[in-house]
Design a protein around this nucleic acid. Structure first.
Lengths: 156, 156
DNA sequence: CGTCTCATGTCAACTATGTTGACTTGAGGA
DNA sequence: TCCTCAAGTCAACATAGTTGACATGAGACG
């Protein structure tokens, strides 16, 4: 048997010497991302799904009747990379695809009820973590967090 | 030839309908992580390295003479997963390992000058992005960001 | 009609990052 | 000496992504 880690990685957050004043922030970004997705990933794994499946469900939920080409653009991956997770979701009937009446060239994707349920539960896990953190710092703190993240996100 | 995406994924940040009030924050966490690591990843790729190598260098820089077992714990991956990137760093002489005089069981890891240089440059790219964002919101905003992220990071 | 374009779909080969399981090695305690 | 246990290695596999090459089927246009 493998040795089982007795502590989650996050418990070591404070264990590194800080060489620069922004090291703490840098590590927080890393562990923050992990912290937000931890429970959602565990839930998805129970369903036999993972992060890429969730990303697909998330986007389709917010863009019903999206074509595959647009989905590829938004996710920022190749169509070959999209292929396998997408087909799994179709097989499992979490998504439906149909040709549009006029635009026969593109398939339009939609969530089924089951797909919507899974998307909601997975995203709820992530939103719950955010909500708790925002509650702790109040509205101005949450707004500051958003402002910082927007600047960082637009760095490209 | 593959179709080349004309826009980075981040440019689609606003293109999804928001189903919940926290959807924007959820997406910001995703694109924020990407935004912070984008330039560092590009720099690392030029050196023939990637994120896991950087993580190793980052930790060893802040814990000189760390043993492999502790490194595994901090990184939160299996020793087998650590093996390949670690050996690459040793081969490329970015890290050195030596047995300690008394504790012969464990190897102690240290950065070489070359390793330190790469670690610094890669981390500098990430800190630069953070610094610009913090500058924009001022000290109180930065503190709020840290407070939010700490709560999220400790969610495990 | 034929041909060209374009979105979609699929196959193959590859890379990278991770996993488990099975094993070796070597120090130190009973 | 023998046993244990941490550290480390090797092999097989899963997942998520990449490029390249090619097939299919509808629409547009001559």
């Amino acid at each position: 048997m493998q040795k089982i880690a007795t502590h989650a990685a996050g418990h070591h957050r404070a264990s590194l010497k800080k060489l620069h004043d922004l090291d703490a922030a840098l590590e927080l970004m890393y562990y923050g991302w992990r912290g937000m997705t931890l429970e959602a990933d565990a839930y998805l794994a129970k369903q036999g799904l993972s992060r890429p499946h969730h990303r697909i469900l998330y986007v389709v939920a917010r863009r019903p009747d999206i074509a595959i080409g647009s989905l590829i653009e938004i996710l920022g991956i190749s169509k070959q990379a999209l292929n396998r997770p997408l087909n799994l979701l179709l097989e499992r009937k979490l998504l439906t695809s149909k040709r549009s009446p006029e635009q026969h060239r593109s398939k339009l994707l939609r969530l089924t009820d089951a797909g919507r349920r899974i998307e909601q539960k997975a995203s709820d896990h992530e939103r719950k973590v955010l909500r708790e953190a925002f509650d702790r710092v109040g509205t101005p703190g949450a707004a500051a967090w958003m402002a910082v993240m927007e600047t960082i996100a637009d760095n490209n």
